[in-house]
Structures are given as C-alpha cells and as structure tokens.
C-alpha cells in the first residue's frame, strides 16, 4: 500500500510490490530473533547484542545491518525515509527505499517530519526527531575499541569491567600529536554512564543530537552481527578531557543554497580550477528551507 501522492515526495515512480516474499523480505522467525535482540539491546543501552545476521540482497557494507533492523520493526502503516550521508537521492538511499517499497509495500518519504522510521548511514537529520519515531543506523564496525584492542574476547572483558582507559589514551595521543582531539567522525560516546559505544561513522557534529533524543535509536551491524540501541531520553556523552572539552566540528561557512549557518555542510568541488561550494548535507532540511524562503519572498512581493 502506497501513501497518498501528496505526502509521498519520493522521486521514484510508484514501485510495484513484489509477490512471493514475506512482508519485509525476512521470514517471521528471523524477525522474531532480531526483535528479541532489539529488546535486549534497548534494555541495556549501548551494549552490543549478537544476532544471527542473514544474507541480504545487497553487499556487506551497504547497510545489511540497518536493513535487517528496519525489516524487523516495519509495519504496513509505517512511512520510511532512508538517507545516505544526509542525502535522500544517493544510490544507497534510493535502492534501500525502493527495496522496502517493493518487499513491504510501505509508504516512503523524504521528509524527516513525516517518517516513522528513518534508516540512516553516517548522519542524523537536522530536523529534531520526536517521540514515536525510530532512527535506524547502519553500522560498519560496532566495536569502539576495535582499533585499540584487536582481541574480541578482551574487548568484551573491557566492556564488562567498564574499563575504557584505552579510549582515553587514544584521545590523549590525539591531543599530544595535533593539539586537539582529531577524531571528527565515529567519535566515541558513553551511553547512560555505563557502556562505551560507537555512534557509527556519523560526524562528531551530530553527537550532541544523540543526547536525550526523543526518538528510539537502533544500530545494526550486518557483517559484524551486532545490534545495539539507545532508548529515548538516554544520556549520551562524548568522551573528552576537562581541559579539552568535546567540540562539535562544522565547516565555517553558510550553505550556498539555503544559507543555513547551523547545519552540517558538505564541501562540493565544482570545477577543476579550485572552485568549490558548501551545501547542507541534509537534503530534506535544505530543500525545506529553500521552499519556505521562496514562499516568503513571494509573500513579500
């Protein structure tokens, strides 16, 4: 079932629902297994729960974890938004949105405010999420200590003992070498004062949005077979030092399309003579702002 055309701003033509698949592609037993992992993950915020990741019809690294989480929680009444680096119109976002339009027949949207489920790769939408919405992250590497401690058994022990000095040593090294914490994405966070968590490779700019977010945040890592979650209104703190506090990094410019000085910007190279421009990475936020500015100008005239 498709959403009414007025609300569905999807750029693709209406996609036909395929038959011969269970609703949402995954079989009911698999969904049940994933939902059990999700419940456990929500009960222990930030803790990585193993699950039996399935082969999905897209390659590892393209969002197999996120797509399985979405498939397990989506219902016929849901409206799905998929973003990739903030954009609704990139290959990964388009193909995942089409996938769910086909195998679940759910309505899709590009408007953050209209969506009930937002599956994302590497960004959190600029528009604040509200209660009842679910943000599903695609996670390449769920283990925040992965680059620091190669043994999986040892990382589990460190999580169990809440021993995160390794991560602080890494931040110390960053400051000692570069004068500031040089981690600009995948910036480690403490969830609920207990578990160290990888926020997936979102820019550090987005980290503060995770703190006490009204929406439920679910994280799926398909290749690594891990699920974790941050329930609504949970404390999420970025690690830092007292004298080197966490600073979200943003390019010092305004979006050239909508003029925003608050949103996260992409730098786009426009020619081979050094020309470049900054534009919002969140396409929905940018077009909405352009739209209201346009109508405001018309009203003024």
């Amino acid at each position: 079932m498709m959403a009414p055309g007025a609300e569905n701003r999807s750029r693709e033509a209406a996609v036909e629902t395929v038959t011969g698949y269970n609703f949402g592609y995954l079989d009911e037993n698999t969904k049940r297994m994933i939902r059990r992992a999700l419940l456990k993950a929500v009960a222990i915020p930030g803790h990585q729960v193993p699950f039996g990741s399935r082969e999905m019809p897209l390659p590892y690294g393209w969002g197999t974890g996120g797509i399985q989480v979405t498939a397990s929680i989506i219902g016929p009444g849901d409206r799905l938004k998929v973003i990739d680096q903030g954009a609704d119109d990139t290959t990964n976002a388009v193909s995942i949105r089409r996938f769910f339009a086909r195998v679940a027949g759910v309505g899709t949207t590009e408007r953050t405010a209209d969506a009930t489920i937002v599956q994302t790769r590497h960004r959190i939408p600029e528009t604040p999420l509200r209660e009842g919405q679910v943000l599903v992250y695609q996670v390449p590497m769920p283990e925040p200590l992965f680059r620091l401690e190669p043994r999986v058994a040892e990382t589990k022990r460190l999580h169990a003992l809440a021993d995160y000095s390794l991560m602080h040593v890494k931040l110390y090294e960053d400051i000692a070498r570069t004068g500031h914490i040089a981690t600009s994405y995948n910036y480690p966070v403490m969830v609920n004062g207990r578990y160290l968590m990888s926020p997936s490779p979102i820019p550090a700019f987005d980290n503060p949005k995770m703190h006490r977010m009204a929406a439920l945040q679910l994280f799926g890592a398909g290749r690594e077979k891990r699920i974790y979650a941050v329930p609504p209104y949970t404390e999420v703190r970025s690690l830092d030092f007292e004298d080197h506090p966490f600073v979200p990094i943003r390019a010092d410019a305004a979006c050239e399309l909508c003029g925003s000085r608050e949103s996260y910007l992409d730098e786009v190279v426009t020619d081979d003579r050094g020309g470049r421009m900054f534009v919002c990475s969140d396409t929905d936020y940018c077009t909405t702002r352009q739209g209201t500015q346009g109508s405001a100008r018309e009203a003024a005239e």
């Binding site: 390794l166 602080h168 040593v169 110390y172 400051i175 000692a176 030092f241 007292e242 004298d243």
Partner: peptide, 15 residues
Amino acid sequence: GNIGERLMATGARHY
C-alpha cells in the same frame, strides 16, 4: 600516554 594510562584508568580526566 603510557604513563598517563594508569592515571586515566583511575579516573584522571585533566589533560
């Protein structure tokens, strides 16, 4: 960093 690790493990958070 090697010397600092033990301090950070025991809660030092002042660089």
